[in-house]
Amino acid sequence: MEQLVQQLAAGLSNGAIYALMALALVMIFVSTSHINFAQGEMAMFSTYLAWAGMQSGLSFWPALAVTVAASFLIGISVERLVVRPLRDAPHLSIVVVFIALLAIFHAFAGAIWGFALKAVPSPFADWTVVSNPYLGPHQLGMLAVTGMMLAAILAFFRCTRLGLAMRAAAENPTSARLSGIPVDTLLALGWGMAAGIGAVAGCLVAPVLYLEPGMMSGVLLYGFAAALVGGISNPAGAVAGGFIVGIVENLVAFLGARFEAATGIYVFGTGEKLTLALVIIVAMLVVKPGGLFSGHRRERA
């Protein structure tokens, strides 16, 4: 029991990161119907910016703030320079462009900062307010930040006029244009916000995973799965999906270990954790193709 709770807690804290990546993917998907495969590498690149800021003497939070702002600009530039000119290109070509961006960000991070692991300090190291045996201070901090990000994003969409305009533009771009909404500008803004969210995810995961150019490649896949499990255009669903994916992943390893302990037969363990989690997620999607929280079949053709 003790161990189960521990695994669930670990699943939650991993899930927080997947949830943030999923949020970033959702930001771009709702307005463009594209999955940005380069999202993880962009987040990794942002994390290097934060690390560089910390090297030059900033503490974590100011460095994060500067990084989010810089990432916002990077996101907008990518949309303007690379994605917008290809607006009418076939869907498969755009997937290729995202793969290209992935390669480019990866290569630039490696060329500028090298491929060696770098340690990033946790900003929550002295968070001993709520001490418990299951979640370390950094894990608690990640959960808190994820909750705050989700609340901020939902509030942005629900309560601000810009958020309303973005929802309108996402649902029906032509009608939004005819209503005077500059949809193209909002698209760029959506890219900027996604890059900013990704930067937060990267900076939170770096103290756990260590910083290196390949840091986010695994996280992106989970974030992708989380976004789909939650219903790809639903921010709250994406966060829930993140936690589900995190917990499933840890439960798989836990159950495998328990089974081996009980029967002495190794069936699956940490090595198969990723594979089994993916099988479960894909099975979920096959059963419920619109995501777990969709009442009806999705409408996309």
Binding site: L221, F224, L228, Y266, E272, L278, V282, L285, R300
Partner: peptide, 26 residues
């Protein structure tokens, strides 16, 4: 049965899972 990004994820998951499955202990 899946379409678009869902199919992309499922196939991508296969690409990740098979090399891992090849390392399976048994």
């Amino acid at each position: 049965r899946l379409e678009g990004p869902y199919l992309a994820l499922a196939t991508f998951a296969l690409a990740i899972a098979v090399p891992q499955a090849l390392k399976y202990r048994h």
